[in-house]
Design a protein around this nucleic acid. Structure first.
Length: 361
DNA sequence: AAATACCGCAACCGCGAACCC
DNA sequence: TGGGTTCGCGGTTGCGGTATT
């Protein structure tokens, strides 16, 4: 009963890998693929457990891993994605080509987290710590949480895609694009659904929220598998058939809520609420993507500013003698209002920039 | 120069989900 | 359908290197 402990067997080696072991593992996987990790050590002549071999391969030996210092761009990406996704390192790694989730996790814990803390920003919520009372109106954390719910749903959908695409995936599981297993996920996903449209949770969410801003009651709704509406604040639970059941290929326009689905074996869809409060889709009879593009607006309600503490300027973000970040403290006022838009602009730029390489955005 | 503290990273551990029979 | 197996993820640990005293 119970789990079979992978390293329980006496005689299995633990600890740092030797160059000889690396060579054996590398040579075996290059020749035969990893196959079953559990069976691999014996076949490769290694006195390691399969789990240890997998870790060594995915975090160190894989040929497509970039090592070394993180660039400013990478730092920014990590921080922004962490604000959105939390400690979901594999998901974050999927957006950082050639970086492993373990490496990103380590970098966050040893560098970025400390930097945020030093600057008076809670690395968990990405809010200023001084916000505990003064930012009663601060909606960013709740919004991020909201976004995370959507992202969770997306990840579930992606996971299903991977399963569905296993038939076409390369048995030699060396990813060519991303570095993390999640990157492999994306690669496979794309292979399985080359015409995949994005499950654009961010944009969908923006649209829904913007509509809410306009007190459009229906704006909080998304279509469920029955074609009825439900609140996006609830956890999305896409069954395997959910998206396929959405009957719209093109537009479905119900009041101010618009749903576009691309159900042809892709699990992808765009759901949005009409940010204008009135349906203007007739203006885009042949170009749903353009409609989405044009109708989306930056969410003015979102607040965040983690990009300001990236030291690209170096000067204005320096902590003061009190250990506070002058600019960040200042940003609790008007500067903050300015920075928040930059932050989310960056976020959306990031999202947009990854559109081509990932079905996520 | 030695001792100690700190830091960074590779590796391990445990859990949950997916898979397989 | 249920139970065992495998895999992947996220948290944690421990060790080696570096900085500080």
């Amino acid at each position: 009963m119970g789990r079979s402990a992978c390293c329980e067997k006496v005689g299995l080696k633990k600890g740092p890998w030797t160059p000889e072991e690396d060579q054996k593992l590398l040579g075996y996987i290059e020749a035969y693929g990893h196959g079953s990790w559990r069976a691999l050590p014996a076949k490769a002549g290694l006195l390691r457990c399969g789990k240890s071999c997998r870790l060594r391969w995915t975090n160190y030996l894989r040929p497509d891993i970039k090592r070394g210092k993180f660039s400013l761009q990478e730092e920014q990406t990590i921080i922004q994605l962490h604000a959105l996704l939390g400690n979901r390192w594999s998901a974050i790694a999927a957006h950082l080509p050639k970086r492993t989730d373990n490496e990103i996790k380590n970098y966050w814990n040893t560098h970025l987290k400390k930097r945020l803390t030093k600057m008076g920003i809670d690395p968990v919520t990405h809010k200023p710590k001084s916000d505990t009372l003064g930012f009663g109106q601060f909606k960013g954390a709740a919004n991020l949480s909201h976004m995370a719910q959507w992202e969770s749903a997306r990840l579930e959908a992606e996971a299903r895609l991977v399963r569905e695409s296993k038939l076409v995936s390369n048995p030699y599981q060396t990813p060519q694009l991303g570095s993390s297993p999640s990157a492999q996920l994306h690669t496979k996903t794309q292979a399985a659904a080359p015409k995949l449209r994005c499950l654009d949770v961010l944009k969908a969410w923006q649209g829904a929220w913007l509509s809410k801003q306009k007190d459009i009651a229906i704006s909080n709704m998304v279509f469920n598998s029955n074609g009825s509406l439900e609140s996006p604040t609830s956890t999305l639970n896409f069954s395997d058939n959910t998206l396929h059941n959405i009957p719209t290929v093109g537009f479905s326009d119900i009041s101010s809520m618009s749903t576009i689905a691309y159900p042809n074996n892709s699990n992808s869809m765009i759901v949005k609420a009409d940010p204008t409060g009135f349906s203007d889709m007739a203006a885009y009879p042949n170009d749903p993507a353009k409609y989405i593009e044009d109708s989306l607006r930056l969410p003015t309600f979102m607040e965040g500013f983690t990009d300001v503490m990236l030291d690209n300027a170096g000067v204005h973000n320096s902590p003061n003698a009190n250990g506070n970040l002058d600019n960040v403290v200042g940003s609790c006022g008007s500067d903050f209002e300015e920075n928040k838009m930059d932050y989310w602009n960056d976020m959306l730029n990031l999202v947009n920039s990854t559109t081509s390489g990932s079905p996520v955005f």
